[in-house]
């Protein structure tokens, strides 16, 4: 009974990176929560060795539900197997990556068992009563909300890329518990075709330098100059949600809760107010520079270097100066 459960999502025969990120969350919370860290994996038995690998990353147990029909994700089938496991073993916490699969699955489990579920958490704390405080940006304005669940397990989805991945442990101590299911419920869904899509791996998530623009750049022509700067610095261009919606740039350049998470050495934001929905995406940046005419803008407060001024003037001057330096 009890346990800190993590959904072990597959991705092309391995585990999705977010599973390792959730493992680092669990390990960080372990001293406060004292729950056994369990990764729950569904699949056919030939995936046993991959599943065992998770023990090296700090899982204290890999709970592996085995059946030949669990070869690929089906919402109804997977949620029934998980709901039954939850009802029987009563974990204290159950986290999912906020991936397409996690977002399809977690609410089905929550709905089936009548449980609370918090979406897209970006941080966790534990209070004196041992409750998991689920933290997420909230309601449009610059606020974060601390949310608790009245039901158990305390369920949440976690945005991929926000937490670092768990490091391997020196001496794995966990065990693989294999549960061979005699039968699984039928699924109403039958897969006919799978097509791989061209990997839209955003250059943003790995970029060493990110130059981003917001509504304060005023016009698309100004925003377009960011590409020049990005090229000069060997970086990538990011944007706030409003400018994506204005059509200045496509949505895969969006940074924030609804977009990408970046962790560059240098981030420069031009004409960006710094709403939390945006800044949760730059938590991992080493040096943050903000260029804004309003010295009180939240991004200016959060920045390491706050440049007060007109971004539409500063951007071209900066490009010229760096070009000169690079000769």
């Amino acid at each position: 009974m009890g346990g800190f459960w993590i959904y072990g999502q597959w991705q092309e025969g391995r585990f999705h990176p977010v599973v390792y990120e959730l493992l680092s969350v669990a390990r960080r919370l372990k001293p406060a929560l004292k729950e056994k860290i369990v990764v729950v994996v569904l699949g056919p038995e030939d995936r046993r060795e991959e599943a065992r690998e998770l023990l090296r990353y700090g899982a204290e147990e890999v709970l592996f539900f085995v059946h030949p029909d669990l070869g690929y994700f089906r919402d109804d089938l997977y949620s029934e197997v998980l709901s039954e496991a939850v009802a029987e073993r009563k974990p204290a916490v159950f986290l999912f990556g906020a991936t397409a699969e996690g977002q399809a699955l977690a609410p089905r489990v929550a709905g089936a068992l009548g449980l609370g579920l918090t979406a897209h958490c970006t941080a966790f704390e534990v209070d004196e009563e041992g409750r998991l405080l689920q933290i997420r940006p909230s309601f449009g304005e610059n606020i974060m909300a601390r949310i608790v669940s009245k039901t158990r397990p305390q369920m949440a989805t976690v945005k991929p890329g926000v937490f670092s991945k768990a490091e391997p442990v020196d001496e794995p101590e966990g065990v693989l518990e294999e549960v061979k299911l005699a039968a699984v419920p039928g699924s109403a869904l039958r897969r006919r075709v799978v097509r791989t899509l061209p990997r839209k791996e955003s250059p943003l998530s790995r970029a060493r330098v990110v130059v981003a623009g917001g509504r304060g750049l005023l016009r698309r022509e100004n925003f377009d100059q960011l590409f020049e700067l990005a090229e000069l610095l060997g970086g990538a261009v990011g944007a706030t949600r409003p400018v994506c919606h204005l059509g200045w740039i496509s949505e895969d350049h969006m940074i924030g809760v609804s977009g990408e998470t970046v962790s560059p050495k240098l981030y420069i934001g031009f004409g960006i107010s710094g709403a939390l929905q945006h800044t949760v995406g730059i938590e991992g940046a080493e040096v943050v520079v903000a260029v804004n005419s309003d010295p009180e803008a939240p991004l200016m407060k959060r920045a390491d270097i706050a440049v007060v001024g007109d971004a539409t003037r500063i951007l071209p001057l900066l490009i010229r100066r760096i070009r000169e330096l690079k000769g």
């Binding site: 449980l115 918090t118 610059n142 974060m144 009245k150 939390l276 920045a303 390491d304 706050a306 007060v308």
Partner: peptide, 27 residues
């Protein structure tokens, strides 16, 4: 079952440089 305990604005108490002046100067 989910209950919002409270909301907060994260504060960033960090050392920062504030650059002001003419555009050429701050660049």
């Amino acid at each position: 079952p989910t209950q919002v305990l409270g909301v907060f604005t994260p504060s960033y108490d960090r050392e920062r440089e504030v650059l002001t002046g003419e555009a050429e100067e701050v660049v």
